[in-house]
């Protein structure tokens, strides 16, 4: 009897565990796979633009489009505003997101210029507290390879990256620092910042 109960309990427990495992494992695996696939596509697009041999200005425009397509611009924008995001009206926030997206796509699009003549390789993906970290290596001629990480989240329903970390240097923190400084220069006037960003 005791043996039987124990056995049944054990079986039930085992089944529950197996169920939990089968439920959790695919979710986690899918998350990793989808995030990695996002960065794979992003990297393939970047490498294709690099390989196209177009004039640099055309490339930068395309890098900006790639950034728009793969990044979660609204989240990056809201984070860059910090506490000021809560004080903003929904209309201001929408206009700011638009202006910031253009600004940041231009800026990082032109940074991708550094990648011309090189290539990016996706190395690994791992689950981290805020999503999935996809690790890549950027390889340049005549230069030591360096690490570029993408933080990918599915919080918006589909995988998008919300941060790029180049050798430890974090885009979200850089942009928050930058936007705070721009706001300070304008006496905290968000509307002025929006119109200035739109013209950048």
């Amino acid at each position: 009897m005791t043996v039987l109960t124990t056995r049944r309990a054990f079986l039930a427990h085992g089944a529950a565990l197996a169920l939990a495992a089968s439920a959790a494992a695919p979710a986690l695996a899918q998350d990793l796979t989808a995030s990695r696939a996002l960065v794979d596509r992003l990297v393939a697009d970047v490498n294709a633009v690099i390989a196209s041999g177009q004039p640099e200005d055309a490339m930068i425009g395309q890098f900006a489009q790639i950034f728009q397509a793969y990044a979660d611009a609204p989240t990056i924008a809201r984070y860059s505003l910090g506490a000021d995001a809560r004080a903003a009206t929904p209309d201001q926030l929408a206009r700011y997101t638009q202006a910031f997206s253009n600004y940041v796509a231009q800026k990082y699009g032109s940074r991708f210029r550094e990648f011309i003549g090189g290539a990016v390789q996706v190395e690994d993906a791992r689950a981290v507290p805020n999503g999935v970290e996809v690790q890549t290596t950027a390889i340049f001629v005549n230069e030591a390879p360096f690490r570029v990480d993408f933080w990918v989240s599915e919080a918006t329903g589909q995988p998008k990256f919300f941060n790029i970390i180049i050798e430890g240097v974090n885009m979200l923190l850089s942009e928050r620092t930058e936007v705070q400084a721009m706001l300070d220069q304008r006496g905290g006037d968000l509307d002025r910042l929006i119109s200035d960003l739109s013209r950048m």
Partner: peptide
């Protein structure tokens, strides 16, 4: 080209150094 080059240089240095 940054609004506060001091703050940017500080952030970049500290993060990159810790990474190194």
């Amino acid at each position: 080209n940054s609004a506060d080059s001091y703050a940017q240089a500080r952030l970049i240095y500290l993060q990159n150094r810790r990474y190194e």
